[in-house]
Design a protein around this nucleic acid. Structure first.
Length: 222
DNA sequence: CGCCTTTGACCAGCGC
DNA sequence: GCGCTGGTCAAAGGCG
């Protein structure tokens, strides 16, 4: 079995302020890697860095592969990625894009519980109202990256064609509906794919000071 | 005792 | 229409 990982305690810190990647808009995404231990870090560089935005497909579905300068790849691993919009990546790890002035469109699926929806048989309510999401890929020994938020695991599933289960986490903060999926790449088990869905309505549960000091971004990330 | 993980079951979406 | 698959729920158990 996989070691259970409490993201806020056992995982290596990778503080980041999770912004919103909406369809097709993103408010901000502020990677902050200042908490990464250097010599003992289980992370290693993915991609060449440099803040390139690389569309993986030619269409306008928003299939984008982002290569932020802190060497963490943002990408869209599955068909859900079609909801990931265009992203701007600034040097220093800042990622941002236009939001069309609608910060919360697409959010707020669930004031109703899933069971309630099931019972009421609200057709299409389960998947069609997708949260905005984005993914990034890291090379890491640990599954759960500490992004400053506190997560509770609510499910695990073995997905097809992978020997590693996918874990489902939800932000423990009340009224915060952000979720994330964590899975390891089938081709390369060292690679961890983290998919965030939704937008935090609060600050990180700890290290808030650090999260507001973007100037440190990537300075400690070799 | 409260919070968390585990895990089987359930359901919707999708492809055939 | 049916089967497969992914995503979620919730009960049970573990841990600090």
């Amino acid at each position: 079995m996989f070691p259970s990982a409490t993201s806020s305690s056992t995982a290596v810190k990778m503080n980041q302020q999770i912004g919103l990647v909406e369809n097709p808009m993103i408010s901000s995404f502020n990677f902050q890697t200042s908490l990464l231990p250097l010599s003992s870090s289980p992370y290693s560089v993915v991609g060449g860095g440099g803040g390139d935005l690389v569309p993986t497909h030619g269409d306008d579905d928003g299939h984008h592969f982002i290569r932020p300068s802190n060497n963490i790849d943002l990408w869209s691993p599955d068909r859900a990625s079609k909801e990931v919009g265009a992203v701007q990546v600034n040097h220093g790890g800042m990622i941002s894009s236009k939001n069309n002035g609608k910060p919360d469109s697409g959010l707020g699926v669930g004031s109703m519980s899933m069971r309630t929806m099931m019972k009421k048989k609200v057709k299409g309510a389960r998947r069609k109202m997708r949260e905005p999401r984005f993914c990034f890929k890291t090379m890491s020994e640990v599954d759960v990256l500490d992004d400053g938020y506190k997560w509770r695991k609510y499910g695990q599933k073995v997905v097809k064609n992978t020997q590693h289960p996918r874990s489902y986490y939800r932000c423990t903060q009340e009224n915060c509906r952000v979720k994330k999926r964590i899975e390891r790449l089938a081709e390369d088990p060292r690679m961890v794919i983290t998919t965030y869905e939704g937008r935090h309505v609060h600050s990180p549960s700890h290290d808030e000071e650090d999260s507001q000091a973007p100037s440190k971004v990537s300075t400690l990330f070799w």
